[in-house]
């Protein structure tokens, strides 16, 4: 059992949790993820570690309530417990020092960039974080990201704050030389269509680009193969070989299609949650 020490509502459907998990907090590195289960009959879902602190033995995760499990999780309060939590899983983000590193976060993916951008900034790299959302109310962790990176670029679809347009448009301007300058490395975390758009934006420039894949997972340890992703001409298991892969090599069509395997069941589960109101089952 893992205690929730802090909970913040970032947007109506996005919650941040700081959780006591000493061993994970000590072992975690930027880019890794955890798998958790909320109740006895619960499924295992992967979530990126947004931040960790080995001193206090805590990790921070951000969830967007899109399915039954994330809604159950979102309903938990400070002082309550998460039933199972395992990690850190996957490999840390591995980017050489010394270049201009640009993190691109779409939606709640912005949170997943937090600890990586900070560690890159702390080791002395030039860092820029580009975050985007539909409007300014849906932006996440802007203050934290501003501290964690040297430059912060905000994009909104409606122009309610920052650059009006998609993150990829802003990224393109930078690739073309706009300040704060052409990226040497790019990391994109967010919904798959957004990561695919980033991959397409950077493909021609051949700037090394990583995307953090979050396919369907069960165990997170290489045991089920449910997380297979085609990268170039090899099949990788995202949980143990990833989660970050070369964006220009990932078969996004296949990856997006595979995430739809359980669409119907996800709807069933959500409906059941609504009709029976069985949110608090932990």
């Amino acid at each position: 059992m893992y205690e929730i020490l802090e909970k913040h509502t970032l947007t109506p459907i996005t919650k941040l949790f700081r959780i006591k998990a000493e061993l994970i907090a000590r072992a975690a590195r930027p880019g890794q993820f955890i798998i958790l289960r909320v109740h006895e009959a619960g499924e295992r879902i992967p979530l990126t570690i947004a931040d960790y602190d080995s001193e206090t033995g805590t990790i921070t995760i951000v969830v967007q309530e899109v399915g039954a499990t994330t809604r159950r999780l979102g309903a938990l309060e400070e002082g309550e417990y998460i039933l199972d939590l395992v990690g850190p899983l996957g490999n840390p983000i591995d980017i050489p020092e010394g270049g201009h590193i640009v993190g691109v976060g779409g939606g709640f993916g912005a949170a997943a960039l937090l600890c990586f951008m900070r560690s890159a900034t702390l080791r002395g790299d030039r860092t820029t974080t580009i975050v985007g959302a539909r409007n300014k109310d849906l932006l996440l962790l802007v203050d934290e990201l501003r501290i964690a990176s040297r430059n912060l670029e905000i994009c909104t679809d409606d122009g309610s704050t920052g650059f009006k347009g998609f993150v990829t448009e802003r990224l393109k301007q930078m690739i073309d030389g706009d300040p704060p300058g052409r990226p040497d490395y790019i990391v994109a975390i967010g919904p798959m269509p957004m990561m695919r758009a980033v991959a397409e934006t950077t493909r021609e420039s051949e700037i090394p680009t990583l995307v953090s894949m979050d396919p369907i997972m069960v165990d997170g340890t290489g045991m089920c193969g449910g997380c297979r992703v085609t990268v170039g001409d090899t099949v990788k298991f995202a949980c143990v070989d990833g989660p970050c892969f070369d964006a220009h090599q990932v078969d996004f069509d296949e990856a997006i299609r595979r995430t739809k395997t359980y669409l119907r069941e996800q709807e069933t589960a959500c409906k059941r949650l609504e009709t029976e109101g069985v949110i608090h089952a932990s």
Partner: peptide, 26 residues
């Protein structure tokens, strides 16, 4: 699916009880 995924969904995650349990099998 791999047999591991198939069986894990059923045995460990109790997909046979879906939607009483949260893990599906399609």
């Amino acid at each position: 699916l791999s047999a591991n995924e198939f069986l894990t969904r059923i045995n460990l995650m109790r997909a046979y009880a879906f939607p009483e349990s949260d893990t599906p099998l399609h």
